[in-house]
Design a binder for these strands. Sequence first.
RNA 1: GUGGAUGUAGCUCAGGUGGUUAGAGUGCCAGGUUGUGGCCCUGGAGGUCGUGGGUUCGAUCCCCAUCAUCCACCCCA
Length: 418
Amino acid sequence: MLTQAPKGTQDVLPASSYRWQKVEQTMRDVCLLYGYREVRTPVFEHTELFLRGVGDTTDVVQKEMYTFLDKGGRSVTLKPEGTAGVVRAFLEGKLFSEPLPCKTCYISCPVFRYEKPQAGRLREHHQLGVEVFGAKDASCDAEVISLAMEVLKRSGIADLALTINSIGCPTCRAEYHEALKAFLEPMLPDLCETCRGRFERNPMRILDCKEPGCRHKLTSAPAMLDYLCGECADHFEQLKGYLAALNLPYAIDSRIVRGLDYYTRTVFEIIADTPAGKLTACGGGRYDALVETLGGPSTPGVGFGMGVERLLMIQDQRGVAPQAEPLYDVFVCTLGSEARLEGMRLVRELREAGLKADLDHAARSLKAQFKYADKSGAKQVIVLAGDELARGVVKLRDMGSSTETEVARGDIIQVLKH
RNA sequence: GUGGAUGUAGCUCAGGUGGUUAGAGUGCCAGGUUGUGGCCCUGGAGGUCGUGGGUUCGAUCCCCAUCAUCCACCCCA
């Protein structure tokens, strides 16, 4: 128990931390090119932020939040998603008074949801994502999608399926809700229990039901896309045009609803077909009313969140996980205490010259030092020993070819750098 | 939250219907080579048999509970 990580959490151990660093670096690189700057927000926020932002009828808020009272009696919640905190920071930092759009990103931000862990689902996971404020044109929706696809492409998984939908604005959605409820009402007794519960609160989520019985009955349900108001329909058409211009293939899936209440108009998912089933690697959309809902000036927003653990998992399943770099370029073996002193000096010189270098710290035999050097992946090994030390030379062994040469002490770095 | 499977060495797994000091492979450490890695040989360390109860003369094995992991659902990244 003492040595066991809490349920649904994972350590990143030395052997795999480079994978995270690579993904994070990729995200940094892409964000730099697209003009997105990083924001870092607290891991916990006032519970109220998520109740108002994410929506108090959503599953995420109703049953999955890590909520507790702090010692001052305030109700706080570990972030269950990335957007609300960034919106709060946007408002608190008064970024709305700076030139808009304000393009932000976050990288490996921890996210917490209290649910039962299984493949690709954890209680603590990490997301990278972007949020853009003050850009109402669909070109920004397309840019955000394009950025997500670029990160995936650079991570070796360019073949993921993009699906998009529009869920309209509050005005056209109200009209749609009426039509949908009129359609659903007669069959209400035949729908599953969860769907009956959703009928009043959020009828659109019924379309997302996975029950075969419900799905079958819903095939002829009215589609949101047919009820979009003129402006929402235009926006969706424009988005399709921009995606086509960027050569980003997509499918339209009118059942995508998303589980967070703040979305308006564009919603999208990037789904990976894996041996373990379909996994959503990335989800996002537009939230034109959220900033205002949280007390700010009316400001459109659009963004996405991508699961880092899922991205890594998909890389594994596709066999495209990057290889780790060798720990050392050169390993220094020493024999005797005098050689060890010289070894310490040499290793520091090597490191100052930008070479990854180390020597034995476990006071082991030469044989064991070689074994360790071999396992660390070092391509070169330097041997420092008594009589050569006195002659001012070292043995340089190439581990790949097993050839050994004598090199003057002063020439080592030049020789190693070729 | 609902349903199912599984917990034996760091890892992958053996341990006929309960019986004495719980094994293998691999990994780790050391020796064989008192100055040299990969291959080979030898040795060593490492296990509260997930945990707690119960049945029994006796439990890794049977029963109950609990915890954890994995899987499906719900939901989502």
